[in-house]
């Protein structure tokens, strides 16, 4: 039977520095991200959202606790296997600088597959490209694309290898709201129509309302959860948390 959870964090703590300058960026966090769902992580600046994402995606080492991605315990993996896990099982969308400037859009989309010497599922890739409307931009270099188009390429890249989970850290943070909404609806579509699993960090209630579920962080701890959010609900909840 398929595990209903694409990624699981159990009692994860992350401490930066030591002694007096010690910062507890994550404090005993346990959270599960359900397969086929769009989850948003919210919280004030410095609450540990990015840190949680980095630890769960194998980009950073946690101080304590364990993380499993697609049933694989990532703490036990060596750098090489961890890299392969990121390549094959995880998709990424960052706030900016998502694309390799020397590769064109098509190559950027297929980058994880190309790095793995993997042809991938061509039918799927075409579907992804169609979903984000990039058919006529494939031969362009990032410098020839607008900010919104660049983020669409990034979303397509994250989807291309049919990963177990996609992590997006403020993917619309650098975009105007129209373009940002466009990206968000693509991500929504990817979950609804293509059955993907997405975890997105954001501090914008409107963005968060695209998700199925919101996890709130505060001072490195889980502060609460909201299901089926609307922007109003989110704002209310944030006020309740004293934000």
């Amino acid at each position: 039977m398929k595990n209903p959870s694409a990624a699981t964090a159990t009692n994860v703590s992350k401490i930066y520095g030591h002694g007096d300058s010690e910062v507890r960026a994550l404090d005993n966090v346990s959270v599960q991200f359900e397969t086929g769902k769009f989850t948003a992580i919210m919280g004030p600046s410095g609450s540990g959202k990015s840190t949680l994402m980095h630890c769960m995606a194998g980009l950073d080492e946690m101080t304590e606790g364990s993380v499993t991605i697609a049933d694989i315990d990532i703490a036990s993996l060596k750098d090489k296997d961890l890299t392969k896990l990121r390549r094959d099982k995880i998709g990424f969308v960052f706030q900016s600088f998502n694309l390799v400037p020397t590769l064109n859009a098509d190559e950027n989309i297929r980058l994880p597959l190309l790095l793995g010497n993997n042809k991938g599922n061509e039918e799927w890739i075409q579907k992804v490209i169609n979903t984000v409307h990039l058919q006529d931009r494939l031969t362009h270099r990032p410098s020839e694309l607008s900010g919104g188009q660049q983020q669409r390429v990034a979303v397509a890249r994250a989807l291309a290898s049919e990963p177990a989970i996609i992590f997006a850290d403020e993917p619309t943070g650098n975009l105007d709201s129209t373009t940002g909404n466009e990206i968000l609806s693509f991500m929504r579509k990817a979950v609804d129509e293509l059955g993907q699993t997405i975890v997105m960090v954001t501090h914008d209630p409107v963005s968060a309302s695209y998700a199925d579920r919101i996890v709130f962080l505060k001072d490195g701890k889980i502060a609460g959860e909201l299901l089926e959010p609307t922007p109003e609900l989110v704002l209310d909840y944030m006020k309740k948390l004293g934000h």
């Binding site: 750098d79 890299t83 990121r86």
Partner: peptide
């Protein structure tokens, strides 16, 4: 550096 970091994040191995 950023480009290399990005590539490593999306799955480029050290040997690559």
């Amino acid at each position: 550096q950023r480009e290399i970091g990005l590539l490593r994040a999306v799955g480029m191995t050290k040997s690559q």
